[in-house]
Amino acid sequence: MNRNDGPLVVGGVSFRSRLIVGTGKYVSFEQTQKAVEASGADCVTVAVRRVNILDRHQENLLDYLNPKTYKILPNTAGCYTVDEACRTARLARAAGISDWVKLEVIGDPKTLFPDNEALLEATRILVKEGFVVFPYVGDDPIMAKKLQDAGAAVVMPLAAPIGSGLGIRNPHNLSIILETLSIPVIVDAGVGTASDAAIAMELGCDGVLMNTAIAAAQNPIQMAEAMNLAVRAGRLAYLAGRMPKKRYAQASSPQDGMIE
């Protein structure tokens, strides 16, 4: 059986790649640009911050990542309350590039785990205001379902804490979320290396978002290419349908015709 794959479609936009990349932690805009190119991603997430009004010659990230080429997904990273997150989302939309928002309402600076209760409230508010909301949530299937019911366009469960690189810590919860939801599920946070991204995709996730795994690699551009391949490989393996696991060996070579 050949299971055909369509593109990842979110908010009416279809993507070539199922990998979304963050743009933080790179040593330069040139490196960011090269890593994004190597990743094959056509959607990038960006943070919303004050303009440095003392340095008029400061370069703009969007000079390196053309919004005509890349779908820009502004995030509310660093927001700890519903009000802060909604305010940041509204400012991001007013910049005129996107009415999408990767919604983060962080509950604690040490773990950067989401405050799921505040996240749900902020999602309801922003959906009502016409935003396409991508909430970053824990790997809790009940909360993921509530976010879907609140009108989120996708849900983005964490695989492990942000920036930890610990990989897919609870594949079972991700599987339950995938079974429960009808909207796309994009793993956000925790991927450390290519095999982690492949595992997420093999589970049937619709996409993976990462930043540190690429930016903090010894060679970010090479790792970006590795992630590009891993996401595609994992997706293909998911579509192909893996063999069942067995506890004992089963020979691959024929038993007949052995030399006696």
Partner: peptide, 26 residues
């Protein structure tokens, strides 16, 4: 943006000017 011209500032106004910077997962 269409209202920048003609939106008169008053004494003590708190103005925030933001743009997009590199960021994502930390």
């Amino acid at each position: 943006r269409g209202q920048y011209g003609g939106f008169i500032l008053n004494e003590g106004d708190q103005v925030e000017i933001i743009s997009f910077v590199g960021g994502g997962r930390r």
